[in-house]
């Protein structure tokens, strides 16, 4: 049990760190593109690569952001539930888990079809689109896992693993 917990938490954190690396990469690519322009060099496909890094920086961090309570929700109704809040949370996490799983399922399908259809970037980079879409697959799957993880913990122990869950009013 403990091993699973440790592995999952490590996975979420790893997602956050990978996302951070992608954010640094965005900065690096944009600086490189500027330097190239000023020195008369060419960095073909820079904007496309920055876009892929944008996707990486977002998707990989979805689960990590969830654990830190960073994703936004309207918590009016939950607060109003008072001591029954747990069942409201169960509803939210269940819906969240279902939608996140649905998104992850189609992310896998979408990347698979990009590969199958040999879809290539329409920009200068001509990258096969399924390669950057790996970040979408990994990030959405991780988010789905995180939702099920929280839901199960909530049902078993009454506590989900989200930080800042009970917000100061």
């Amino acid at each position: 049990m403990k091993a699973i917990r440790k592995t999952l938490d490590a996975l979420y954190l790893a997602g956050g760190i990978i996302a951070a690396v992608f954010l640094i990469l965005i900065l690096a690519i944009i600086v490189a593109q500027m330097l190239a322009r000023w020195t008369g060099q060419v960095f073909p496909g820079a904007t496309d690569y920055a876009g892929y890094c944008m996707a990486g920086a977002s998707f990989f961090a979805f689960a990590y952001a969830l654990n830190h309570g960073a994703h936004i929700r309207v918590s009016l109704f939950l607060s109003a539930l008072g001591r029954h809040r747990r069942w409201g949370e169960v509803f939210c996490f269940a819906i969240g888990a279902i939608i996140a799983t649905w998104v992850a399922r189609y992310a896998i399908k979408g990347a698979y079809w990009s590969w199958k259809l040999n879809e290539k970037s329409q920009g200068l980079d001509a990258t096969p689109i399924w390669i950057p879409q790996i970040s979408m697959v990994a990030g959405t799957v991780l988010l789905a896992i995180a939702f099920w993880d929280h839901l199960i913990r909530l049902l078993v122990s009454g506590q989900h693993g989200m930080l800042n869950a009970n917000r100061a009013e």
Binding site: R37, G40, V42, P44, A46, T47, D48, G123, L124, A126
Partner: peptide, 16 residues
């Protein structure tokens, strides 16, 4: 790709 190549052949500096 084609417009970038055109820039290269004419000595222009392609900016995306």
């Amino acid at each position: 790709t084609a417009t970038a190549r055109l820039a290269e052949l004419t000595g222009m500096l392609p900016v995306q």
